[in-house]
């Protein structure tokens, strides 16, 4: 056993340099050359300033913007330094109370919307930073957004359709609407 200790420490040192410094260093260099936008966080600019990341959700609350899913990241939600889900089990009374309150709020804010609530819009995501909502959750909010902005409902629905990302390779994951991109498109329209 004692004879194994010297090679063990030497091997750890070599592996630390190889896989812990050289490997991530080369990957960083290649990514920064070929994919600089993605490697630096897919940051989005509007009016010359950075307004967020296309991949990180934001806590929209104003009626003229589309709203994201509930978020358990940080006390106010959508805090990217506190990613995570609510971790409520299916029989947690706190889960049911939260969903009930969010349903009431959603119905109040979107009185034109009838029918069952889309499953994603009243449930907290796993990351707390989900940048997307389902197309159904976007269409449900369209009348409110159109009214608050004074633009025709048809135009808002057209934008949702335009910003609905289909499944990659036509079968993976679910179709989705990026809330920040959609809201930026609405702002671009009003300008």
């Amino acid at each position: 056993m004692r004879r194994q200790l010297a090679p063990a420490f030497r091997m750890m040192l070599v592996m630390t340099i190889l896989t812990g410094l050289i490997y991530p260093g080369i990957v960083t260099a290649v990514c920064q050359i070929f994919f600089p936008r993605q490697a630096n966080g897919s940051l989005v600019r509007a009016d010359g300033r950075i307004v967020g990341s296309a991949l990180i959700g934001q806590n929209f609350t104003k009626p003229e913007y589309f709203h994201p899913r509930p978020s358990a990241a940080g006390t106010d939600g959508y805090n990217p330094t506190a990613s995570g889900g609510a971790n409520y089990g299916p029989t947690s009374s706190r889960l049911i109370e939260r969903v009930r309150a969010d349903i009431a709020k959603f119905r109040e804010q979107n009185p034109q919307f009838q029918g069952p609530i889309p499953a994603d819009i009243v449930t907290a995501s796993a990351s707390g930073l989900d940048p997307d909502i389902s197309p159904a959750a976007a269409y449900a909010q369209a009348p409110r957004v159109a009214k608050a902005r004074g633009v025709p409902l048809a135009r808002v629905r057209q934008l949702i359709e335009q910003y609905t990302e289909p499944r990659p390779l036509d079968f993976l994951g679910e179709p989705r609407v990026n809330v920040l991109k959609l809201n930026l498109a609405l702002d671009g329209d009003n300008r």
Binding site: A86, A119, D120, A124, S125, D130, D132, S134, G173
Partner: peptide, 9 residues
Amino acid sequence: NMEGKETRF
């Protein structure tokens, strides 16, 4: 059951 799941997945 979308509680704790991401929209894209």
